[in-house]
Design a protein around this nucleic acid. Structure first.
Lengths: 194, 194, 194, 194
DNA sequence: AATGAATGAGGCTTCATTCAT
DNA sequence: AATGAATGAAGCCTCATTCAT
């Protein structure tokens, strides 16, 4: 649909938007800001995106896809459930750290239903995975019984909380160290032997 | 400053705003909406609040104060650090559940610096407490060494993640059960003996 | 819905819009122009009208209603069909002359379907009347046979053509004289006896 | 100035514009629409026309010229004035029917002065002819006295009203039949013998 | 205290036009 | 001749805030 050069321009806009959204929020960020940051005229925005909301949706979808890919790549299909959870957790922390600006508004924006829809729209894919893994682990006796969704909530919440803190500068650790810490944290919280 | 009746009116507005902010977000909620929901004319808003931002600040401050109070009340001064963390954690979950609409936008809004400031402005009080407790616990050998802020992040993140999930309807548990679960979760995650 | 004063303001806006639409056209007239002409701030427009299109629709509907009323008042229920046609014709010319600015854009604007719809939406009421009268007259042998819609088109076209010419300043006659002329013109064009 | 192929391209654009103008109006039709309809890229428009207004003017002028030619060809120089009026009338109806899309916006657009100017700019040539013919007829005693411009207005208004109705689909007659009807209609309306 | 009308800055979006290729 | 990307002025509309009553 767009030439190679065009894709670059588009990416410039996406990047600029991500940075601005994450620092000022979706509502507060003006299209004029995005264009200025990308160094193009205001009108060009609409050559690449149908609306402000359209850009937002694309941003969210793209990152969600890439995150899922990173998670999948990290999870060893042959490994036991707890291990896989840990692998996914660490991969998530790392990926989110590497794309800070893109994630700092994902779990954040709460506005009109349209945006909320986009945010929701695929958010349970990974969630379902984790729930399944938890159930497996319970089956294998590695986890105490109980609603798997509770454990899954804990796992995913840990990822986003630590990532959030990292982005906010409240934590000051090398990424890989943080990932390991979160992995440990989750593993301990899950483990039943105590 | 305001008569008794006036305080009621004001509270109506605060409540309405909380509900709307939490469902549509600060930016998307119009003052007209708030007034309509509270059943008063638009002009009256400014009799009670200096500005939209002013209302927001008041909302945040009030709830923060009350939350802190609930936490303090729950934490037994004589108890060992891990116990106190658990007490604070459970109290937080319960309080947030009882004031869902007030909290669903607290950890959420990211907009112009003014709002961000309000959100930040006292957020580390509890955070500092937790950090201190963690340090104590480490001192007492109940926790492995390491940056106390990391553990504190885990604790507070758990509270907000589970609360968030509860508000979103992704969890369907009685509040007290959830609180206990989060207490357990955090305790396991913290405990070093393994 | 609006106080008496409010109705006045609204009327000011309607009047201003009519004048501007008729001189510059709907598309070229800016809401800012209308407000300036009415002496109010731009924002107030939306207190009285939902959109620019809404104002247009109201304008059209109001005038159409009044025109129909004027026509009905002029047509003697007991008179023979040709006479009634003549009466309606003259009344129309007079009414349109007295509300020049309102009618100069009625038969004129051709834009997006929304507007076109409003313009169409009741335009056949009078048209149907005329068709019926023509048929009656044919029945009474006062008119040659043939599709009544053709004659009706001639009648209504005459009204609007002469009115149009008057508005454009291409004609320079007292209104009542013009009305009589159009009445004669239509009567001759209809009469079969020759 | 343009190669043969170029003239074709240009004509494609003119045709497309005529159709669009007549269905959506000048203001609502975007240059992008015209180019899309003509199957060329947007940028090419400006190779053939200086501006949107320029295209409009060309459209109007071309058609006006051709219409005048058709009228002239139909009017027998030796015939009496009333006959010539009738001939011109019928020729006009036919020509306009054959170029519907080109005429449906001629008597219609009311926008900024520039366009209005183009529309006016030669519109009185035929008008003057008719006025002259009317005067002649009056002189010959075939018409009652009175301002010739009034009769001329009736004549020309009839042409455009019936043509308009035909274009709008409100009439459903073969073109030649309609032309004859309009000829009769005008002749009756003009004739004084009654 | 309370109302609802009034204001005006500013945002999103459209679109004629220009430009580099 | 032709393309499609790029520009920027300008329009419609929203909404926080103020004002007269």
């Amino acid at each position: 649909m767009h030439t190679e050069q065009g894709m670059e321009r588009k990416q410039q806009l996406l990047d600029a938007a991500a940075v601005l959204f994450s620092s000022k929020g979706y509502a507060t960020t003006r299209i004029a800001d995005i264009c200025a940051a990308a160094g193009v005229a205001k009108g060009l925005f609409y050559w690449y995106f149908p609306t402000k909301e359209g850009l937002f949706a694309e941003l969210v979808r793209t990152m969600r896809t890439q995150l899922r890919r990173a998670q999948a790549a990290a999870m060893d299909p042959g490994a036991p459930p707890l291990t896989r959870i840990r692998q996914g957790t660490e991969a998530s922390v790392i990926f989110m750290a590497e794309h800070r600006s893109y994630f700092s508004f994902l779990d954040v924006e709460r506005t009109d239903e349209a945006l909320a829809g986009v945010l929701r729209e695929g958010s349970d894919v990974y969630s379902d995975d984790v729930i399944k893994l938890v159930a497996e682990a319970q089956h294998a006796g590695q986890l105490p019984d109980g609603d798997p969704r509770m454990y899954a909530t804990g796992v995913m919440g840990s990822v986003s909380s630590f990532s959030h803190a990292l982005r906010n500068g409240r934590l000051d650790v090398p990424v890989y160290e943080l990932a390991a810490f979160v992995g440990d944290w989750v593993e301990r919280a899950l483990r039943s032997d105590n």
